[in-house]
Simulated assay, not measured.
Amino acid sequence: MADGTGTIMDHADVRRMLTTMKADIYVARAIALSCAVAIDMQKATGTQDWAARAAFLTPIAKAFGTETGISVANMGLQVHGGMGFIEETGAAQYCRDVRVTAIYEGTNGIQAMDLVARKLSDGGEAAFALLDEVAAQAEAARARLPDLAEPVWQASESLREAVEWMLTQTDLNQRFAGSVPFLIGFARVLGGHYHLTAAIAEGKNGPRSKLARFYITRLLPEYIGLLAHATAGADDLYALSPEDLSA
């Protein structure tokens, strides 16, 4: 690049990968910390609401955190190119080692099934309480940060509809069919909330606000496809016979 440093960081696609890595790591950490706060508050207060929040966030923290780790390691290898693949940088080792995290301590598929079944057995109270906070914060931030707040508010409303759809499904297999995209979609919306929180706290167009704008503009919209998948039911998953699948 004529006006750049002459490094691979001058390439737009490398910037995309690095910024995605940073934005998603922030979300994974924020979800885990929110879960930890809920656990601590439940122990300190004995309040059932905090216990319900901790229980609800646990499968999201585990599954989204490990999926993020896998994705970040994979993008890190991609950034390093051939040197990453042939062990020169150690990037390939991270890819191999992180893969098991989506399997142990309950596979991410099991975590997602737990989320849409047992964790929604309260009629969605814990989920709706979280979404109420997301929507309220976005509503309050509209005047200051309309370009960030409005998409987060819209996402929270779409997610609320997906939760309501899950609750109407008495056949749990209908929920299980979309449980993984539902979990990731929920994490995506929470990510918008946490990035908006950071931008509000920063109060100016600094690095946190810039990262929030990247996430909300480029990554948050993934919830649309994820929630469409989550609420599609199970029928089409069984449309192909075992013979069709193996052909």
Rank of each mutant, 00 (worst) to 15 (best):
S71W: 13
Y238P: 11
T66A: 12
L226P: 00
L172C: 11
S158Q: 08
E87D: 13
E125D: 14
G225R: 03
S34P: 07
Y94V: 14
L130W: 06
A199E: 02
L167C: 08
L227R: 02
L240P: 11
A52K: 14
G84Y: 03
V100Q: 11
G65H: 09
D3K: 13
Y238M: 14
V189L: 03
M1R: 15
A117N: 11
A199L: 03
F176N: 11
G6C: 04
A212M: 01
L159E: 04
A198N: 02
I216C: 00
A23R: 03
S209E: 09
A136I: 02
V37C: 13
M75V: 07
Q93M: 10
E67H: 14
K43T: 13
F85G: 12
G82E: 13
I216Y: 02
D49R: 09
A198F: 02
T7Y: 03
V37I: 14
K204A: 10
T231K: 03
F214I: 04
L130P: 05
A36I: 03
R15A: 13
S241M: 10
K22V: 10
E133H: 12
R188S: 04
A140D: 07
W165Q: 02
A23I: 02
V116S: 08
E243G: 12
A143E: 07
L115F: 00
G191W: 00
T45M: 06
S71T: 15
V189R: 01
T101R: 11
P221F: 00
D13F: 12
R175I: 04
G65S: 08
P151S: 05
D122M: 10
A232H: 07
F64N: 06
L148D: 00
A136Q: 03
G90R: 11
A162L: 02
A199C: 05
R175T: 04
G4P: 06
I86P: 08
Q93D: 12
W50V: 12
N173L: 08
Q111M: 13
D122K: 07
A54S: 03
I86C: 09
I103Y: 12
T170A: 15
Y104Q: 13
Q78M: 14
L240Y: 12
A143I: 04
L237R: 10
P146N: 07
A102Q: 10
R99T: 15
A129P: 05
D40H: 15
F85K: 11
R188K: 10
Q154M: 04
G203Q: 03
T231F: 01
T19L: 10
N205S: 12
R208S: 09
